[in-house]
Computed example of a mutant assay.
Amino acid sequence: MSNQLLFSIKLFSILGCGLVAGMFFAFSTFVMLALEQRPPAEGIAVMQAINITVINPWFMVAFLGTAVTCLGLAISSLMQWQQLGSAYLLMGSLLYLIGTLFVTMRFNVPMNDALAIVQPNSPDAVGLWNHYLTQWTFWNHIRTAAALAATASLTLALRAPQL
């Protein structure tokens, strides 16, 4: 892989991890808090709308595009382990792939799916919403920290001199 292509992939990954970290940070620090302050039916309805709206090309390029480039960087780091910065590449890539993508698919998406089928005014809605607010937000904190740590690690890899 050419140095320029590798640099471009690293840079895209850094920017993607940082962008995703920022989106998750916003949810952890004020979006979920604002939804919690609303009546449960209203909070549920808004979160259901958010979960539909988030499936768009811009978010998918940032979220999944970063996962693809991180996977490529993880493989590249293993193939060129002797290169300075390879450990940072591998660590940053794994932080994103496991701490962001895997956590999303394993924890946040199933909770979103459960929330999607509840009627906001149903008797079960309040209990589900209270559980959702605490658990979804907990896992979102994990995703935020992982994406931010991935950004830092990949940035350190970018700074490593090439042999």
Rank of each mutant, 00 (worst) to 15 (best):
V109P: 04
S77W: 09
L64R: 03
A114H: 11
A67E: 06
F107Q: 14
P57S: 01
T134K: 12
S77A: 15
V103T: 14
T155N: 05
L97G: 05
P120H: 05
S77G: 15
S86G: 09
A116P: 00
F63T: 05
V109E: 02
L84N: 14
A125T: 12
S153G: 02
L154Y: 10
L156D: 04
A116H: 01
S86M: 03
T104F: 00
W139C: 00
A145F: 11
Q82K: 14
A152K: 04
M47T: 04
N108D: 05
P40S: 07
S86F: 08
L73E: 09
F107A: 12
L95G: 10
N108S: 06
Q48E: 04
W81E: 04
L97H: 01
Q119W: 04
M79T: 06
I44P: 12
T134F: 09
T155L: 14
F63L: 04
V103S: 02
G85V: 08
Q82Y: 11
P57W: 00
M79Q: 13
S93D: 00
G65S: 02
Q82V: 14
N56V: 03
G85M: 04
T69I: 02
L64C: 06
N51C: 03
L84M: 11
L128Q: 10
F102K: 01
T134H: 10
A116L: 03
V103H: 04
F138W: 13
L148W: 07
L84V: 05
